[in-house]
Structures are given as structure tokens and as C-alpha cells.
Amino acid sequence: METITQPSKPASAKKIKSRRFWKTAVQQRYLYLMSLPFVIWVFVFSYIPIWGWTMAFQKYRPNKTFFEQEWVGFQYFQELLSDDRFYMVLRNTLAMSFLGLLVGFTVPILFAVLINELKGRFFKRSLQTISYLPHFVSWVVVAGIVYKMLSTESGGVNDLLMWLGLIDEPIQFMAKGSWFWGIVTVSDLWKEMGWNSIIFLAAITGIDPEQFEAAKVDGAGRWRQIWHITLPGIRSVIIVLLILSIGNLISIGFEKQMLLSNPIVIDYAEVLDLYALNYGIGLNRFSFGTAVGIFNSFVSIILLFTANGIFKRYSKESVM
């Protein structure tokens, strides 16, 4: 593919190119057979429903057919972009997802690397199994535990700080807006670190052990092995995941924020997805909900292509 020779005459260039294309296509028939059916599959299940985007430009009523709907143009987008609350929730969303990316993405990598360095097989296995348990515990429960630990009444964290003499009276952690983003990020880390490390651990397993042996022979210490073999070995997984996560910066769900929030910190807690629910579907305003969805998709796609472009240029690894 990369070594196509420059055709000398422009007139026949097209023809040659087309002939080459079909020739290669026949050669690659198995590859086509293995992918095209699934492309069609994706078209049916993921692309056809996109007609629903037309709702954002209509005053959509579920009971009417497509042709009976009343068209309203960009009314819902204007409403969205002129709402002060929208910018507040956008700020919160980006702040928390950025923190999530910074911490929630890097720590699991580190965790996977460190697990890999453990010696005892039993310990290694148990740790792996146990570290991913919180993933299965619902946010309701986790938020409840976080609340209890940070409570001013015999909450574990306050008790500890008092005992250490760092504070004189308990801190109301959950009543401080400035702490909220951090608390969400740390809680999320606690819950998902083990689970998110699985994919990296799998990638580490794919590294040829001979490389480690060779490094040991060269007298490389543990940190150098990690730095020169383990991390580069899982680089492509890291980059692909990172690009996909950057595309997802704007849609971070709302469950954890909602469960951890309270009226005092609400200005820091409401995120875009909850806003879309509260002001869209929750009020049967499908059109407005769809408009928010389209906004989401556009931002995501821009982020995705930007991240992809940057990584493609500087690291040669990319999704597309």
C-alpha cells in the first residue's frame, strides 16, 4: 500500500489505481469477509437510529409519525446555549472528567505495573481479585461509605486527623464545594482502579519475558525494567485507550456526582448528563434531550480527532 509507485501519466493514473484496488481487494478477500458483515451490522444497530437526531429540530411528540412533526429549526440549540446553567454544568463536567483522566487513567497503569512486579503468586492473585471487587458494588453503597468516612460525627478521616493532632475540630468535607471534585475523583479511583487495571495487566502479559531476562543480565534494576520494558510494551494499549477516553471527556455519566452531592455543593456537582436528564427526557422534552446529545457527540468527535491527530503525529500510534 505505502509503496505505490507514482504513475507517469495522469490520464491512466485513475485506471491503474482502480485496477490495483480491485486486484488488492481480491487478494484481501478474506479480510473483507471478516470485516464487512460486521460493518453492515454496525450500520444497522448504530447508524440507522441516528435518524433520531431529527428530533432536535422538531417539537417532537412520540405519538406522531415523522412527517407529522412540527419543525422548529435550531430553537433547542439556542435555548441550550443561552442557559447560564448549561455553562456551569459544562465547567463541572470538564473539571471532573479532566481530573478523572489525570488520576483515574494513570493510577491503574501504575497499579498494573506494580502488581506485575509482585513475587508471591497467591498474594498477586488475591490482590487482583480483591482490588476489582468495588467495581461491582453500586455507587449508592460506595457513596454511603464515603459519606460515613468523611462525616463530622465519628467519621474515620476526621477521627484520624484529630488523633494526629492536625486539626482541632472536625472538617465538614462534604459541605465544601472546592473539595467536591477531588472527593469524586478519589472515590472513583477507589472503586474502579482494580477493574481498570485489568486491561493493562493483560497487555503486560503480552510482553516477551525474554526481554526482562535480557535486561536483568544487563543489570537493570526494577525501575529501569519498568521504564524501559514494561511501559513501552503496553504503550499502544495506553495510547489507544487514552485517545478513546479523551473523546469521552464530556460524557462522564452522572450517578456518582448525584449520589455524592448535597444542596450545599450542588454548584460544583451537577454535570451535563444530569442536566440533560433533568431538563430533557425527565420532563418528556425529547427534543431538548436530543439537542444536548448532539452537542455532546460533536464535542466528543472533535476531541477524538484532535487527540488522534496529535498522537498520530508524535507517537505513530493512533486509533484511526
Binding site: K59, R61, R85, P263, I264, I266, D267, N278, Y279, G282, L283, N284, R285
Partner: peptide, 26 residues
């Protein structure tokens, strides 16, 4: 009615009240 302005305004007013009342009390 579904398309009444009441639904949206009510949501907005809930959002305001639920934040400001605790603030006023404290």
C-alpha cells in the same frame, strides 16, 4: 400539559430553591 412552560420553569425553580434555602438557613 407536556408543552407548557410550567414544566421547565418548575425544574428551574426547584434547582434554585433547593440550593438557596439551605444557604439562607446556614
Amino acid at each position: 400539559p407536556n408543552d407548557s412552560i410550567i414544566t421547565v420553569t418548575q425544574q428551574k425553580s426547584n434547582d434554585i430553591v433547593r440550593k438557596r434555602i439551605p444557604e439562607a438557613i446556614l
